[in-house]
Nucleic acid binder design. Structure first.
Length: 198
DNA sequence: CATATGATTATG
DNA sequence: ATAATCATATGT
C-alpha cells in the first residue's frame, strides 16, 4: 500500500479553509511498535493573534507555541490539564500562527496497538472501537503522539496525513468550538467541523 | 519564586 | 458532578 501524502501547499492556507478540508483525510503514525491510523472526523480552526481562543492570541510566542509561528505542515503538540496531549496541524504561513486541532478520528489500521496504548479491553469490534479515538487526548494516546512529535514535518515519514476518502460537503456540519468559554465573543463562532460517517 | 489555569478524560 | 495532575503562563 502506497501513501499519498498531502502536499505542503495543502497546509499553506488559512485555518478556516484547511480545517473542513481535513475531514476524511487519514492521519498515520509509524513507530517501532507498529503503524496506527484513523480518518479525521472532527477538527477546530484556531485563526491566529486575533482569536482569543488560540494559544497564539496576541502574538504570544513562547516555548510551547513556537511551532505555531513556524512553517505550515508541521505538528503542534501540547500537554493539556497536565494529563493529555493534543495534536494540531500548523497551517497558513510562517509568522502567521494559525493551527487546526484534530479532535476525533475513525480508527483504521493498527487497532490492536491502539487498544494496547489506550489500555482498553478489546471487546467486539464496532462496540468499544468507537471510543478508541473520539477525543483529542484519546487520539494522541492511541496513535502514540507525544511532545516527541513536536514540530514534526507532516510531509515526512513518521507522522503524516494522506488523502484518505473524500467527504461530500453536505455531510459536514459547523458548530461552536469546545471548552473555550474564556474566549468570550470568539467562543460561539462555528469553527468546529464535524463529519459524521455513515 | 508563587500561583492559577486549562483546545480533557474517566468515573460515579 | 468531579477528581486527576502538571507544564505553562504570568505576576512579583
Amino acid at each position: 500500500m502506497t501513501f499519498h501524502r498531502l502536499p505542503l501547499d495543502f497546509y499553506a492556507r488559512p485555518a478556516l479553509e484547511v480545517a473542513p478540508d481535513l475531514l476524511g483525510k487519514l492521519l498515520v503514525h509509524v513507530t517501532p511498535e507498529g503503524t496506527a491510523s484513523g480518518y479525521i472526523t472532527e477538527t477546530e480552526a484556531y485563526v491566529g493573534p486575533e482569536d482569543k481562543a488560540a494559544h497564539s492570541y496576541g502574538g504570544r510566542k513562547t516555548d510551547r507555541t513556537r511551532a505555531m509561528f513556524g512553517p505550515p505542515g508541521r505538528a503542534y503538540v501540547y500537554l493539556i490539564y497536565g494529563l493529555h496531549h493534543c495534536f494540531n496541524v500548523v497551517v497558513a504561513a510562517e509568522d502567521q500562527p494559525e493551527a487546526v486541532l484534530v479532535r476525533s478520528l475513525k480508527p483504521k489500521d493498527g487497532l490492536e496497538l491502539m487498544f494496547a496504548r489506550r489500555r482498553l479491553k478489546q471487546q467486539r469490534p464496532g462496540n468499544n472501537i468507537c471510543r478508541l479515538t473520539d477525543g483529542p487526548g484519546k487520539l494522541c494516546q492511541a496513535l502514540g503522539i507525544t511532545k516527541q512529535q513536536y514540530g514534526c514535518d507532516l510531509t515526512g515519514e513518521q507522522l503524516f496525513i494522506t488523502s484518505g476518502i473524500s467527504v461530500p460537503a453536505e455531510n459536514i456540519s459547523a458548530q461552536p468550538r469546545i471548552n473555550i468559554d474564556y474566549a468570550k465573543e470568539w467562543a460561539h463562532l462555528p469553527w468546529r467541523f464535524v463529519w459524521q460517517p455513515d
